[in-house]
């Protein structure tokens, strides 16, 4: 389901780009508004192109930030500007048909950006609160550390060896640097998808492809000894209570009942009632 929604959205937002020539053939009512719509179509197409082409490895935030910002800008213009006094462009483009191409296209871009938490990677503009194209110091630090680490791996890497001991030995310092920065900050802020993906790849490479992370298991003799001791304790406990606790019995109270033969009207068929034979169970 989610897959289809996304495909449709992609299709819808690429539509103006694919058929850009046809737009000129439309009956133009208001040039300013239609020009802006055309701008929006081109810019959103550019963003979509950028996003999809940077899907693997994920670099959407870093690479597409400028085109995202321009999409937002033109969208804001369309929704806020008035072509003539009292006449908003928005009213010509939005809420006119059930397809809502303009809104859908914008929502798709917005959602993609937000899902990737891209805003978190960029320094925010003090005045407007909007992201700028400037990466934050923390992200820069991680990216720098990553490139140092990449360089190191490239230098020592031997494709046939696994674990690649040379890399493991020489690059562990670099790996630890980048890992520590990430782990330290992970609890406090939500990293953008670029950084998360970078880390995932780095870690996969380190633990998986390079096999540098497989010596974590230790014998742990002490723990196993304690655990087996604790495991035996209940049996000792139950055995002790079984042998040391005296059996307790309770006296049965006899209910006072009428035992006499009852003739006549009160006579009822005799039935067989047995007391429970086994109370020991």
């Amino acid at each position: 389901m989610a897959f289809w929604t996304r495909s449709i959205l992609l299709f819808v937002c690429c539509l103006p780009f694919l058929s850009a020539d046809d737009i000129s053939g439309m009956t133009v009512q208001d040039d300013t508004c239609m020009d802006m719509l055309k701008d929006f179509a081109n810019l959103s197409a550019a963003f979509t192109f950028c996003a999809v082409s940077h899907a693997r490895p994920i670099l959407i935030c870093q690479e597409c930030v400028s085109s995202y910002l321009s999409v937002v800008e033109v969208y804001d213009d369309i929704t806020k500007l008035e072509s003539t006094a009292g006449h908003k462009c928005e009213s010509e483009l939005v809420n006119l048909d059930r397809l809502q191409v303009f809104n859908q296209g914008y929502n798709y871009i917005k959602k993609l950006w937000e899902n990737a938490h891209c805003d978190n990677c960029f320094v925010k503009d003090r005045a407007t609160g909007k992201p700028t194209t400037q990466l934050t110091d923390l992200v820069m630090e991680i990216l720098n550390a990553s490139s140092v680490y990449e360089a190191c791996v490239k230098k020592y890497h031997n494709a046939t060896a696994k674990p690649d001991l040379a890399v493991c030995e020489n690059c562990i310092g670099n790996y630890k640097t980048i890992n520590d920065i990430y782990v330290k900050n992970k609890g406090t802020i939500e990293f953008c998808m670029d950084v998360v993906d970078l880390m995932n790849n780095t870690r996969n490479e380190w633990s998986g492809d390079l096999g540098c992370c497989n010596d974590r298991r230790k014998p742990e003799i002490t723990m196993i000894l304690i655990a087996s001791g604790v495991g035996v304790l209940p049996f000792i406990f139950y055995a002790l209570t079984y042998f040391l606790t005296p059996k307790k019995v309770h006296a049965v109270i006899e209910r006072k009942r009428w035992n006499g033969e009852s003739n006549g009207v009160s006579k009822s068929p005799e039935i067989h009632i047995t007391p429970p034979e086994n109370t020991e169970d």
């Binding site: 309770h250 049965v252 006899e254 109370t279």
Partner: peptide
């Protein structure tokens, strides 16, 4: 066995932990 003639007057006892009491 099931119908003891007169033991019912003798005080019987039961063990703790049974469903029949």
């Amino acid at each position: 066995i099931i119908l003891p003639p007169k033991e019912s007057r003798i005080t019987k006892t039961v063990v703790t932990g049974t469903r029949d009491v």
